[in-house]
Design a protein around this nucleic acid. Structure first.
Lengths: 193, 193
DNA sequence: AAATATTCGGAATGAATATTCCAAATTGTT
DNA sequence: AACAATTTGGAATATTCATTCCGAATATTT
């Protein structure tokens, strides 16, 4: 089935990222990826070089999907505090509705690979900085609109809420339920008063 | 070299947990464990059954070491808030002095294994509950001594600070430096006023 | 319709990997 | 000093895994 690519690159990366998300990099075999993506062995190696490269591309794909979700939220007509609240609400809903969903691929990648693969650490680190910055702009916005009053620079709260978010992902992988996660977010958001 | 065990079981588990900590479960080979522990292949299988079993025992060993560190802190003559502050300070010092130290084995185990291995999830989940409870007692103590005033049950703050702690581990694996981590802790501790 | 370019399936390869097994070594016991 | 109990080193095994390679298939181009 040539002469042009017979598969949708994004769908392949999506399927691959699901497997990597479930089992981690070292825990997934090429065969598992083949059945998940429906690709043939040679197509995969032809188009994605090797497992490690596919992993990195899956990571970036996942990051882009995540970014888009957050940017959609960013474009809504809400003040920064509402955006933050909405974001946490949807994260908690997702985590509690999909308890089998293995946390967050980027967090798992940080844990499994960032100290062994520089490129992984770059993706993970960029994600951290971008999300922190976005949170900071939300918080600045809320302050300018006099919805909240800050005792520290907005940047610091961006760091704090990113930390809270990472914690949620780990806690849900450690068996925390919805009320537990909600409690955490409530206390965290209280820091803005 | 018989007739009794020629190796110190705790030292083996300590060495094994270091390797698992660096490379994860699927990322470490038996050979790496053999060189790290100095054990022979047959001794390892004789005494620890197999890789998976050794991993679980290493996890529990690591958890015990962690527990003891925290309990040492618990026995000091400080109020609960001071204990919390000291704990965070030492975690941040450790993370920033050992940037190559791959986060926390228990957090990494949660990310890599908890959805694939029930026993791992048990260890990780128990650790979460124990640490949360300890934090809660510290916070209750600080409230009773009128050092702080709480707007929510102490238990909720225990959950919140455990979440903060998990976040720190992930953030340090994502390239966060000392000031960033300190900022997070400052905002988190402000929630107690 | 022939040529071209590219994909794809699956067998083949070779390297790692976890685990087993046996004989040699060693120390405590009699 | 011989025996018993157990560890240990290292070879052997069997499995899994990532990667390569070749020939068949097919859609576009000429």
């Amino acid at each position: 089935m040539p002469k042009y690519k017979q598969f949708d690159r994004d769908k392949v990366l999506e399927a691959a990222s699901v497997v990597f998300h479930e089992k981690g990099y070292n825990g997934t075999s090429i065969d598992e990826i083949l059945t998940a993506t429906g690709l043939s062995r040679s197509s995969l190696y032809d188009s994605f070089k090797d497992k490690h490269n596919l992993y990195l591309q899956s990571l970036e794909f996942y990051k882009n999907v995540n970014d888009k979700k957050i940017q959609n939220l960013d474009e809504k007509n809400l003040n920064g505090l509402q955006k933050l609240e909405t974001m946490f609400k949807s994260v908690i809903n997702h985590l509690s509705e999909h308890p089998d969903d293995n946390g967050c691929l980027l967090v798992n990648a940080a844990a499994e690979m960032s100290k062994q693969c520089f490129k992984t650490s770059q993706v993970v680190c960029n994600n951290k900085d971008e999300v922190q910055n976005l949170f900071s702009t939300w918080i600045s916005d809320a302050e300018e609109k006099k919805v909240i009053k800050l005792e520290k620079p907005a940047k610091v709260y961006g760091q704090f809420f990113y930390n809270t978010l990472c914690g949620l992902r780990v806690m849900s992988q450690s068996g925390a339920g919805k009320t537990e996660l909600s409690n955490v977010v409530k206390v965290a958001l209280d820091s803005l008063n």
